[in-house]
Structure formats: structure tokens, C-alpha cells
């Protein structure tokens, strides 16, 4: 029992690292994804945006992560820590998926919403900020929650560049104690707990939005 507790604490110390990767990655993902989707809607640099999304979605994340951590320093001499390399890789990867989610959300809005904003003389920036995006985010919220969950599970790849996350810590324990079952189960429980938490928050936000609209 004491060993189990000690193992759980050791593995759980990776939680903060995972949350940093997830938070930083998703923040970059949503900002870059948002810009990409607006570029694409406004037919600006469509070719570049489409190629970017296609390449990111068409190559393994493990390759993108290794590329940023191992080969970027060799090319331009910028040295990165494991955490920053992870956040950048997960952020860029997520941005491609987020941009597709947002694009479908933007395209599913009636064109009249854009036109109504135009006829009322609302400047472009405010049109996006106050009229279009609030509606788009509400419509695509379930898809965005899915994307966060997918990203959370993908952060386990950080182990291949030496990040001390939940997965890697459980592997260390397993290798030290010649026993895989318990540490992997502990890691699984941690991940699943996080997923449940994200689902719960997502549902809370969804419910809050529908309460506002259907009082």
C-alpha cells in the first residue's frame, strides 16, 4: 500500500507538466487557428493556409514534435527546453484542427449575419469579435471540447523528447520495479480523471449558454 501511494504521488507530479503543455498548446492552437480560419474565410492567402493545414494534418505529431525539438536547434541555433518545444509543437498541431472546426462554424452561419452587421455600419473588427465569433464558438463548442481531449491524450508523446509527464513517470516506475500493471493503471486513471474534468467543464459552459437563450 505504501509503495502504491508513493508511486501514485511520483506519477501525479507529472500532472502540472501535462496541464502546462495542454494549456499552452491549446492557447496557441486557438489563437493561430482563429487567425487561420478568418484568413481562409476572407479568401486571404488561401493557398498557404490550406497547405499548412494539410501538411500538419498529414504528418504524425510525433514527427512534428521531434522536428521542433531536435532539428530546429540544428538549423537556426535556437535552443529550446522540452516544455517550450512541446507547447509549440502541440500548439501548431492543434491550430490546424481548430482552424478547421472554426471554419466550418463560420461557414454554417447565415451570410445575412455578416450583411446585417455591414448594413448597421459595424466595423469589421467588432463584427468578428461581437457578432460572428460568439455565435461560432457556441455552435462549435462540443467539437472544441473534443479537440482539447484529443490534445490532452496526445501530450503523452512528450515522453519521446524526455518530458517528465504522467506517462513517462509511470514508465520509469515500471522499469525500476519490473512491474507494468500498477503504474500504467495509475497513469490511466490520472488521464481519465482529467478527461472527465474537461467534459464536465464543457457541459457546464454548454448548459449555461443554452440557459441564457432558453430562459
Amino acid at each position: 500500500m505504501e509503495k502504491f501511494l508513493a508511486n501514485s504521488i511520483y506519477i501525479g507530479r507529472g500532472l502540472g507538466f501535462v496541464l502546462q503543455l495542454l494549456g499552452g498548446g491549446f492557447l496557441i492552437g486557438i489563437i493561430v487557428g482563429l487567425l487561420l480560419s478568418i484568413f481562409r474565410y476572407r479568401k486571404a492567402s488561401v493557398f498557404l493556409v490550406e497547405r499548412f493545414v494539410s501538411v500538419i494534418r498529414g504528418t504524425p505529431l510525433i514527427l512534428q514534435l521531434s522536428f521542433i525539438y531536435f532539428s530546429i536547434p540544428g538549423i537556426c541555433g535556437i535552443k529550446m527546453g522540452v516544455l517550450s518545444a512541446g507547447i509549440i509543437a502541440f500548439g501548431i498541431n492543434s491550430s490546424a484542427y481548430v482552424s478547421e472546426i472554426l471554419r466550418s462554424g463560420i461557414e454554417s452561419l447565415p451570410k445575412g449575419q455578416f450583411e446585417a452587421a455591414q448594413t448597421l455600419g459595424i466595423p469589421k473588427y467588432y463584427m468578428w469579435k461581437d457578432i460572428i465569433l460568439p455565435q461560432v464558438i457556441t455552435n462549435v463548442l462540443p467539437a472544441l471540447v473534443n479537440e482539447i481531449i484529443a490534445l490532452l491524450k496526445e501530450t503523452a508523446l512528450i515522453a519521446i523528447i524526455g518530458g517528465m509527464d504522467i506517462m513517462r513517470r509511470s514508465q520509469i516506475i515500471a522499469a525500476e520495479q519490473f512491474e507494468y500493471f500498477t503504474p500504467l493503471c495509475i497513469a490511466g486513471v490520472y488521464y481519465y480523471f482529467l478527461v472527465l474534468l474537461i467534459e464536465l467543464v464543457g457541459k457546464k459552459i454548454e448548459k449555461k449558454q443554452s440557459d441564457v437563450k432558453n430562459p
Partner: peptide, 14 residues
Amino acid sequence: KTGFMFQDFQLFPH
């Protein structure tokens, strides 16, 4: 200055 009323109103639902 022109004002415009759409056939399907296009109120902002949020």
C-alpha cells in the same frame, strides 16, 4: 445614410 431590413430579419441571436 441607408437602413436595411432583411426579409428574414437577421437579428443577432446571442
